[in-house]
Design a protein around this nucleic acid. Structure first.
Length: 631
RNA sequence: GGGCCCGUAGCCCAGCACGGAUAGGGCGUCAGCCUCCGAAGCUGAAGUGCGAAAGCUCAGAGACCGUGGGUUCGAAUCCCACCGGGCCCGCCA
């Protein structure tokens, strides 16, 4: 997009004019000034030069500026250069040319980043145990992961979105225990989602019973052993139940706008024997060691050179611990071991395209997964230690492999005191961590329901003539927008203390604000007699600060997205979208479009509305925030 | 005991990667703006001066950036220590 081109020119000018002034080896750093009264881009290079040469920064700035002014004459988008006595070089943009070019690029559909040779990237996210419905903590994972998938694709990478299903763990076994040993019905009551039923009723009930009746725990280990076998009555039954719960979870994921390319099953990973091969290699190189005495007697362990501690990977009974399942999964993603899987269609009705599943039956379906150049795992921060162990082991399998394995960690979502109280838990501090066992959580479906209810009221108020179906569809979009944006905009390193009341806000820095802004822009375009078109002459009439601000902002999407990709930080897109929406609303309130008497100027403004709304829609798409023409 | 993360207005958050020009938003509070392209929005913080008006000009709420040191011409940003909060360090997943 054009702002980046402008930036490139400025960098070039700074570098050339430094050289021409006899200042060598200075990085031509360019940044946005704190205030646009200084200009549209600035460089602090004179300060650095002055530091080395002992001159005054302001004098250096004048010297370099005199050269820069000459170089700028050849440039396309640099309007003027001026030195600042504090030691800055300030560059202003050639607004008419910049706006005319930006608008026509965007109007022709060019919303993308500079296409580089895309990498093959595997992004793992969601990974919810198939025994319960998604709660808002899982939603944070999903939103982060799915937005990363979208951003990476926008940047031109070839992305595989992976969802890991732990279909053989204790949590699944608990559901089976409930059905088979506590006599709980394996059908949900009328009107209750299957995953909600299993999580809210079955899982909670089974855990209560464990506390009362410890012998029930033996049933759990019995079920686990049966599942492990992979065949037989219990294994088959579990497979069917897992599938029902998973499908129910997937409907929620899809509702949130997240889709996947492949499901990886833990049971298949275990049966694939990948671990056994890796284990042999690790034994051969002496990285895993057998302990014949001490507290880890009878176990295979890997040492941690830094802490001097060791991590058990194979228990004394020969079974593997959790991290030893993550290692082959990571190795498979990066193509560090042979691919034991076939691939088959799991769902062809997924909104974003076919969802595949691994299989050990050998069917390939003509598709390929794994073998990625980069693997990103969206996993909460509590697993950072284990993820570091996985990375270290990868390095032992293949020199430097850990550089291609990235853990996108994030803090958990907890509940505010008020919200905990609203669902029947009186707590000590200001917030409480969610707990599936205790039943202390807010389900995604519940939250979307509340958001939608409120959105319906708000939407109906503004659209008295519309059908119920129409209002429903809009309210659904508003609900999803509100939740996704809320979970995405905050830094992943910060805990979200979720408060129901606050999350129900549709004003200010929220998803619905973006939807509203887009609809506002569409309204202008729908009502107009004019045509969105602009040329150099009419662009020159766009002279107000609000118009220029909007034009600049809209052509920075690619810059924000690059940052988001580089730092695995999709909240950059949230900042961008909000800034763009603010710029649009200020423009909207500040200058007339359809009421503008000068038809040339009106059309130029229309073109600006058209282009900026396209960019807004694209940035919303990158966050998985739905877009509606009217709300 | 070892390690990771967080601490910025009454509340919630940006900014920290790459040190630089008046620390940005949102909520809330208060005051305005719908006969004027959608008020899920915008403007302002009793205002001053110029002007017929659009508007311009000046002024202008809320922050010891957890605390204390250090590095630097310059620190919210880098380094160290401490305080407060959260998390992890399992033959659970």
């Amino acid at each position: 997009m054009k702002f980046r081109e402008f930036e490139g020119e400025v960098e070039e000018i700074v570098a050339e004019s430094c050289r021409a002034s006899g200042y060598k080896d200075f990085e031509a750093d360019v940044s946005l000034p704190p205030n646009d009264e200084y200009g549209d881009l600035a460089s602090a290079v004179p300060i650095r030069v002055a530091k080395r040469s002992g001159q005054k920064p302001g004098d250096v700035a004048v010297t370099i500026a005199s050269k820069a002014i000459e170089f700028a004459k050849k440039s396309k988008y640099v309007g003027s250069v001026s030195p600042h006595r504090g030691g800055y070089l300030n560059f202003s943009i050639n607004a008419p040319r910049f706006i005319a070019d930006s608008v026509s690029d965007i109007a022709s559909g060019d919303l993308g980043a500079e296409r580089k040779a895309g990498e093959k990237i595997a992004i793992e996210h969601t990974n919810v145990n198939p025994n319960k419905a998604l709660h808002i903590g899982h939603a944070r994972n999903l939103v982060l992961g799915d937005s990363l998938v979208r951003v990476m694709r926008y940047l031109g990478h070839k992305v595989q979105a992976l969802n890991y299903v732990d279909d053989s763990g204790a949590q699944v076994a608990d559901i089976i225990v409930g059905f088979r040993f506590l006599g709980l019905p394996d059908e949900a009551p009328e009107g209750v989602k299957y995953d909600v039923y299993c999580g809210d009723s079955v899982y909670a009930k089974v855990n209560q019973e464990y506390a009362k009746n410890p012998s029930l725990k033996e049933k759990q280990s019995f079920v686990l052993k049966e599942i492990e076998k992979g065949s037989g009555e219990y294994a088959d039954y579990t497979r069917a139940i897992v599938r029902r719960i998973l499908d129910s979870q997937l409907s929620t994921c899809w509702r949130l706008g997240a889709t996947y390319d492949l499901l990886n099953w833990e049971s298949q990973l275990v049966h694939s024997k990948m671990w056994e091969k890796i284990f042999e290699t690790l034994k051969k190189i002496g990285y895993v060691k057998y302990q014949d005495l001490g507290e880890n007697k009878g176990c295979w362990v890997i040492p941690d050179a830094e802490t001097g501690e060791e991590k058990v990977v194979v228990r004394s009974d020969g079974t593997v611990v959790y991290v030893a399942k993550d290692i082959p999964y990571a190795a498979w993603k990066l193509g560090l071991s042979n691919d034991p899987f076939g691939y088959e269609v799991y769902a062809d009705d997924q909104p974003g395209g076919v969802l595949y599943s691994t299989t050990l039956e050998g069917k390939k379906s003509g598709v390929h997964f794994g073998n990625a150049e980069l693997a990103i795992s969206v996993i909460d921060t509590r697993q950072s230690y284990l993820q570091r162990i996985v990375a270290k082991v990868l390095d032992k399998l293949h020199e430097g492999a850990s550089r291609r394995y990235m853990h996108r960690s994030y803090e958990v979502v907890s509940l505010s005191k008020k919200t905990a109280s609203a669902i029947g838990f009186e707590i000590e501090g200001e917030f409480a961590h969610m707990s599936g066992r205790k039943g202390l959580y807010v389900n995604v479906d519940t939250m979307l329901g509340k958001l939608k209810e409120k959105a319906k009221v708000e939407t109906r108020k503004r659209n008295l003539a519309e059908s119920d179906e129409w209002v429903d569809a809009v309210a659904e979009a508003v609900a999803v927008a509100a939740l996704r944006y809320e979970l995405l905009k905050q830094d992943p390193d910060k805990m979200i203390v979720f408060d129901m009341e606050e999350a129900l806000r549709f004003q200010g820095d929220t998803g619905p604000y973006l939807l509203y802004t887009y609809a506002r822009a569409r309204r202008i375009l729908d009502k107009t007699e004019g045509k969105p078109r602009v040329n150099l002459a009419s662009a020159a009439k766009l002279t107000t600060k609000k118009e220029i601000q909007l034009a600049k902002k809209m052509s920075m999407l690619d810059i924000s997205a690059s940052t988001a990709g580089e730092y695995l930080s999709p909240k950059e897109i949230a900042r961008f979208s909000h800034d763009l929406a603010v710029a649009f609303n200020e423009f909207y309130e500040g200058v007339p479009v359809n009421k503008e008497p000068d038809p040339e100027l009106r059309d130029a403004r229309l073109a600006l509305v058209d282009a900026s709304s396209r960019v807004l829609a694209e940035s919303m798409r990158l966050m998985g925030v739905p877009v509606k023409d009217r709300i």
